[in-house]
Structure formats: structure tokens, C-alpha cells
């Protein structure tokens, strides 16, 4: 099974390259090698200047996202044996500005994550703000699937709507927003509604669904966003007939206690 494999890496060195270009490397192949291992081999044996991000090697830190043959993947969770003996093309995550080689500028993504208020918000009249709040398994199950995000950005590289219009809040941020809206301990839905209701909130999504396919943690952002559309429609009608927004995570409380 041992042989060699050709890996093409997209290079971009801002101080000398006018635009990105492809460089091929012939590597020693072993079936247990991940794409991240291949990048290490290139750095160790061919070009110590190759720039790429990585940390945990076990699909939890979310640093090593890149395009493998045009598909957003984690380098540590993608194995050469699934491509061998074909050559593999590695590029930086799509839709983000390239900083250098495989490193992209994630600032816009990180700003959006922070902007959806991804933390428990309690109402001002909360009389016992610091007491523990128990949840039933059913209440936990409502948001747990949306709480597995590792902020790797693969879903943004998968989302053509974000690529076409980067004002769109995008999959991970809106899924995170949905996660807090569905948490029975949270009362901050009204504060998050303006983000959802905007043209660049849930309405920027056309349900391509690729975000959910590429997510390495099994989060389903497409489901989260489109459930968010129903929340937004209800809020639209409430607004039309002059009702204030539903302040509590209303359906969370109802359904959880049922």
C-alpha cells in the first residue's frame, strides 16, 4: 500500500505573488495519513514556508478547514486513502479572503458569531438571576443538536449565498442563534429577532442545504435557519397586528413543559 501521492496546494504569498497559483508536491504515502499529515510532510521536507492553520488533530478545535478537491473539509478528518492514487488539490476555504497560502481571514465570520448574542440572556425582571436552572432531557434535546458547532467555517465555504453576498449572516451564526432561542433557560429571543428578520438574516438563505452536508460535527444549519424563517414569519404577523415580539423563548417553554 505504500507509494507516493501527488498533492497540489494553492499558494499565495502576498509579498511576492500577484494572485494564487498551484504547486504540486510528491509525497510518501501511507494509508493512515490525513490531509493534515500531508501538509506537515510538505512543511518538513519541501517548503517550511507553507502557511496553514491547525491545532488539535482531532476534529474539535476547528482550525484546519480547507478545500479538498473543491469540498470544504477538516484536514485532520480527511484521509489520503479515500483519494489515493489520484492526486488531491488543497485550497484555502472558499468565500473568505486569502491571507496567505491556506490561511483565510475569518474575522467577518467571527464577528457574526458574536453578533447573534450567543449566550443565555435573562429578562431584566428575573428575580433569581444566579440560581441554577434545571432542564429536562426533552428541553436539552431541543437545542443540543445545534450546540455542537466548533466554528470551523466549513459551512460558510459551502454556502453560495454567503459567497455571493457576505453581508448574509450565514449558516453557523444563524444556527448558533437558533440554539440559544431554543434553550429553555434563555429569554433573549426578542433581542435576536431583528437579526433574524433582516434581509441578511434568515432571509438571506435559499435552502441550498450544502452547509449541513459538509458540517464535520453533524450540525444542521439549514434546518436551524429554515426553522428560524417560521419564527420570523410569526414575528412578522405579530408586528403587523401590533403585538410585541414574543419575549421568552415562548415555544421552548411550552414544548419543554408539555
Amino acid at each position: 500500500m505504500n507509494g507516493t501521492i501527488v498533492i497540489e496546494v494553492q499558494r499565495y504569498r502576498p509579498e511576492q505573488d500577484p494572485h494564487p497559483w498551484w504547486q504540486a508536491f510528491e509525497l510518501d504515502y501511507r494509508p493512515e495519513m490525513s490531509v493534515l499529515d500531508a501538509l506537515h510532510q510538505i512543511r518538513d521536507r519541501h517548503d517550511s514556508g507553507l502557511a496553514y492553520r491547525w491545532s488539535c488533530r482531532m476534529a474539535i478545535c476547528g482550525s484546519c478547514g480547507l478545500m479538498v478537491d473543491g469540498v470544504p473539509r477538516l484536514g485532520c478528518k480527511t484521509f489520503l486513502r479515500d483519494y489515493y492514487p489520484d492526486r488531491i488539490r488543497l485550497g484555502p476555504l472558499a468565500h473568505f479572503p486569502i491571507e496567505r497560502d491556506l490561511i483565510v481571514d475569518l474575522r467577518d465570520f467571527l464577528d457574526k458569531l458574536a453578533a447573534v448574542k450567543p449566550y443565555l440572556i435573562r429578562a431584566a425582571q428575573d428575580e433569581r438571576p444566579s440560581e441554577p436552572r434545571r432542564q429536562t432531557p426533552a428541553q436539552l434535546a431541543r437545542f443540543l443538536p445545534f450546540a455542537q458547532c466548533i466554528s470551523c467555517g466549513l459551512c460558510y465555504a459551502a454556502c453560495p449565498e454567503y459567497g455571493l453576498n457576505n453581508r448574509f449572516f450565514g449558516p453557523a451564526a444563524l444556527a448558533l442563534l437558533h440554539r440559544y432561542n431554543r434553550d429553555s433557560r434563555d429569554q433573549g429571543r426578542a433581542e435576536r429577532l431583528p437579526t433574524m428578520n433582516a434581509e441578511d438574516g434568515v432571509w438571506g438563505c435559499t435552502f441550498v442545504g450544502y452547509c449541513s452536508q459538509v458540517c464535520p460535527k453533524g450540525v444542521d444549519p439549514a434546518a436551524a435557519i429554515n426553522q428560524g424563517k417560521i419564527v420570523s414569519v410569526i414575528d412578522y404577523v405579530r408586528h403587523l397586528v401590533g403585538l410585541s415580539p414574543a419575549t421568552l423563548g415562548q415555544d421552548a417553554t411550552q414544548e419543554g413543559e408539555r
Binding site: 464577528d111 457574526k112 453578533a115 431583528p194 437579526t195 428578520n197 433582516a198 434581509e199 441578511d200 438574516g201 432571509w203 424563517k229 420570523s232 414569519v233 414575528d235 412578522y236 404577523v237 408586528h239
Partner: peptide, 15 residues
Amino acid sequence: MKSARRSNEPLTWSL
């Protein structure tokens, strides 16, 4: 990031 205007897409999307 300041909050943006409410979209009218709930109407068209429902239809």
C-alpha cells in the same frame, strides 16, 4: 453590526 431593517420576505416566502 447594527440591526438591519425588517425584511418583507415573510410575506413572499409564505406564498
